[in-house]
Design a protein around this nucleic acid. Structure first.
Lengths: 166, 166
DNA sequence: CAATAATGTCAATAAGGTTGACTTATTTTT
DNA sequence: AAAAATAAGTCAACCTTATTGACATTATTG
């Protein structure tokens, strides 16, 4: 917008102190970010691992176990424990892959979708308030910096389904 | 990049889809954010908990145990296990508080400072690259949104906007 | 048919968190 | 001065989420 003099000299944004503040902000923000869903998950005796699985199954209905392992960055044993519980509790539906019958296609059930919605709404509330308070320019910056911080292979389009084939 | 027009219709920044993308970006970015120090910590058989303790002791030399408990949001038993190891290994120095002799003042030793520096440099590299790639405006937005996401009591007093004095 | 791939499972181990109970100093309050 | 509160440390039991390693099953592919 303007020449941006609200934080003083523009060249100072790369100082160690500014970087340290960014690092701390990441720490505190991530904790706030997970606090609301954590409270809901407790009701169900689920943890963050369950939340992440639910989130990504919702985002990529029909995703496979190995894809989820890649995205979440955990071992199959670790994912399996989480997934097993979600399936037992009727939140996730597993079907045999049509193209490759070795794979398992994962979908949220109605009940799974309901919990997903509840978790999202809790998290959304905080995010929306933050977005509203800071405005679209800030949000664009926020997203841009986060994209740069994450490992290359997870930047944006990684979330789209079309990447299999291999 | 001063015109800030790249994200299209400004009113669309509060849609569920945008919020979900922000949520995912937080997840992936946080993982990237911790990846580099994690590799160093492994050499020492330390974990993230040790890193956090080291970070905040460095930021507030002379901080007390209870202050650290507040900042880190863990129980004293949990913090104590981490702290004990850092003291045993000669990274943290503990002295009795002068004003209140019940308290313990925590400082990094030379060796502790060295590890802190190493960890910071690893994390800084990624953050600086992200900051450089996106520019000061984006970084200001990034910081502003993160400040809003975190719980109020952890917001830094040095944040220029909405500085409400309390 | 043999090799490879995707998934599932069992077992052992670890970090890092929790709650609860109890102790020791030290400061504050009554 | 005695009592209460506070700061810190410790022991124990337990939970979640992660790991590695080994092995089995089923399906696809060369």
């Amino acid at each position: 917008m303007t020449s941006g003099d609200k934080s003083g000299d523009k060249r100072l944004f790369l100082t160690d102190d500014q970087l340290r503040k960014g690092i701390e902000a990441m720490f505190f923000a991530y904790r706030g970010f997970t606090a609301d869903p954590d409270r809901i998950l407790e009701e169900y005796s689920y943890g963050r691992a369950h939340h992440r699985a639910i989130h990504f199954i919702n985002r990529q209905p029909g995703t496979t176990v190995s894809n989820l392992i890649l995205i979440l960055g955990v071992t199959k044993q670790s994912l399996n424990r989480v997934l097993r519980k979600l399936v037992e509790n009727g939140l996730v539906d597993v079907t045999v892959g049509e193209e490759d019958r070795r794979t398992r296609r994962l979908h949220l059930t109605k009940e799974g979708q309901q919990l997903e919605r509840r978790l999202f709404e809790a998290q959304r509330k905080r995010m929306r308030a933050a977005y509203r308070a800071t405005g679209p320019e800030a949000v664009a910056g926020f997203r841009a910096v986060l994209e740069q911080i994450m490992d290359t292979r997870f930047r944006s389009e990684t979330m789209q389904e079309g990447r299999k084939d291999g």
